[in-house]
Design a protein around this nucleic acid. Structure first.
Lengths: 120, 120
DNA sequence: TATACTACTATACTAAAGTATATCAGTATA
DNA sequence: TATACTGATATACTTTAGTATAGTAGTATA
């Protein structure tokens, strides 16, 4: 069982800090998590919609990654009793909040590219 | 060659957004990158110091990951002509700025844990 | 009757990531 | 002469991640 740590505590202890940041990293790591989250950021989608927007992902991986994301509280899965059956995937509130993190990552990534380019 | 994209452009196009965020993610992904960066956040260290503070990392992995981080402009490597030779590793300016991203990840991770715990 | 749609699952494989263990060169100390 | 220190590298292995390809159930349409 994980113990709950405050921001202050995590910042003060390098080991706690790395562990806590790693929890977030694990939610978005792997080849397909980010494309899936990205495709759900602006609208909920069905299985085949996500597959179409991402393109080269296999149904096996999409299914597996969606399960992971659901288990981690990032994605909500809703089954509709239509014929044929339809299933909708959407980001949870917490999942939507991840965009703040992604924006920061984007911002840093862009400045980092400029910083490293100027060194060559 | 990667094309340079502004924050606005990346935010406007989901594909560019995912690609740019992924650049950042690649810099910190893998089992050991975060522990290494964490151990260098507050002070420069030598190879064996990093190995000691992380504990169970093998020299093969530490060597490989430090090379990756150096290539990505995250870490600066300085060799001192002592006997025996000493080598110091420190974060670059850009590497230090990553702590802003890590703080955001920490913040989100903590709120996410609370959000998902309350759902059970 | 054959085909297509939905959202997947099964099996077998390849590729990437990480581990374990031993070893290197050069110098200094016991 | 043997041992230890520095910062690694070499080889072989296991484990995890991802791919390829085919197939499932239930219903609807041509």
């Amino acid at each position: 069982m994980k113990n709950i740590v405050s921001f202050k505590e995590a910042k003060a202890c390098p080991i706690q800090f790395v562990l806590a940041v790693n929890d977030t990293l694990n939610v978005i790591s792997g080849k397909w998590k980010l494309p899936i989250i990205g495709s759900l950021l602006f609208e909920k989608k069905r299985f085949s919609d996500i597959q179409r927007t991402i393109g080269k992902i296999t149904p096996r991986m999409l299914s597996k990654e969606l399960k992971d994301l659901e288990m981690n509280g990032m994605v909500k899965r809703t089954v509709y009793d239509t014929t044929p059956i339809t299933v909708e995937y959407e980001l949870t509130e917490s999942g939507k909040l991840l965009s703040d993190v992604l924006d920061k990552m984007l911002e840093w990534g862009l400045q980092h590219r400029i910083a490293t380019l100027s060194k060559n």
